[in-house]
Write a protein that binds this DNA or RNA. Sequence first.
DNA 1: CTGGATCACTTGAGGGTTGAAGTGAAGGTG
DNA 2: CACCTTCACTTCAACCCTCAAGTGATCCAG
Lengths: 144, 144
Amino acid sequence: MLGGLIFNLEPALDAQLRRDAGLSLFEYGVLAGLSEAPDRTLRMSVLAAIADGSLSRLSQVVSRLEKRGWLRRTPDPSDGRYTLAILTDSGWDKVVATAPGHVAEVRRIVFDPLTKAQVQQTAAIARRILQAIAPDHDCLNDRR
Amino acid sequence: MLGGLIFNLEPALDAQLRRDAGLSLFEYGVLAGLSEAPDRTLRMSVLAAIADGSLSRLSQVVSRLEKRGWLRRTPDPSDGRYTLAILTDSGWDKVVATAPGHVAEVRRIVFDPLTKAQVQQTAAIARRILQAIAPDHDCLNDRR
DNA sequence: CTGGATCACTTGAGGGTTGAAGTGAAGGTG
DNA sequence: CACCTTCACTTCAACCCTCAAGTGATCCAG
C-alpha cells in the first residue's frame, strides 16, 4: 500500500508543475531552494543536498535554468573550487508565480485528505524510514 | 518531511535490486506480477496496471526481459488485439532468486523501523492520499 | 460485407538521468 | 617549491522514460 504512494505522489506533483509552470519538480526545488537562501545564493553542492539530487544532475539542470535566465553561476571568490548559483530577479519572479499553485496541489493531495493526527503520524513515520535508508544523513532539517 | 521519503524510498529499493539482481524495481515488479498470476500469464494491459506503469513503458521493458529469456509474448488466441506475457521457467527462477533480498530490504527499510500501529497508520494515510490523486482509480486492490 | 471507429499494443524521436571519467583549483607533505 | 591527493564541479555516453504517431486486429453501422 505504500507502493502506490511511492509511484504516484511524485509524478502527481511533477505533473502539476509541468502543466502550470513548465517546470519539473526537481527544477522547482532548485529555484525554490535558492529563493529561500541568504542573498538567493548557494554553493552547487549545498543546493544539490537541498534539492535532494546528485551534483551531476544539478549541474545539468542548472545549465538549463541558466539558459532560461532564472539563475546564473559564478566561481566562489573565497574558494575557486566552489561555484555559486544565484537566483536572478527573473528567477525570483518565476518562483513567486509558481509557488502558490504548487503549494495548493500539495495541500490538496496531502494535507486536506489527512486529519491533523495523520499529518503528525506521517512526519514520525517518514523520519523513521529515512533513518533506515540513510542512518548517517542527519534528518533534523526538513528537505522541502 | 514527506518530501524526503518520496525522493529516497523508491531509489533505495531500486538500488538494492540493481546491485543484487541486475533488475530495476519496475522490471522486478513486472516479473513478480507475472509470477503471481494464473499460469504465470497476463495480458500486457493488465500487467501494466499491476506494475503501475504506462503500456508504452511496459512494452519496452518486456522487450528487454524477453531478450534476457525471462518471459515471452504471444498473441491472445481468443482476441488478436491482446498480447499475453508469459513468465518462462528461467524467469520464475529469477524471481525466486531475487524476491528474498527484495523482501528483506522492504522489511528493513519500512516494517522494522515502524511500530505495528504505524504500519496501520501508513496504510490509512496512503489510501487517503491516493484517493486524492486519482479519485476514480479504485484503490481496493493493493498494488505490490 | 465494407468502411470507419475503437482497441491493444508497438515504435521512434526527444529529452532527462545516471555513473564514470575528466578538469581545474586548493591543501598537504617532504 | 614540486608532487600528490582531495575537492567541487562538469562532461559524455549509455540508458531509460514519455509522448505522439503508427500498426494490426476487432467491432459495428449501414
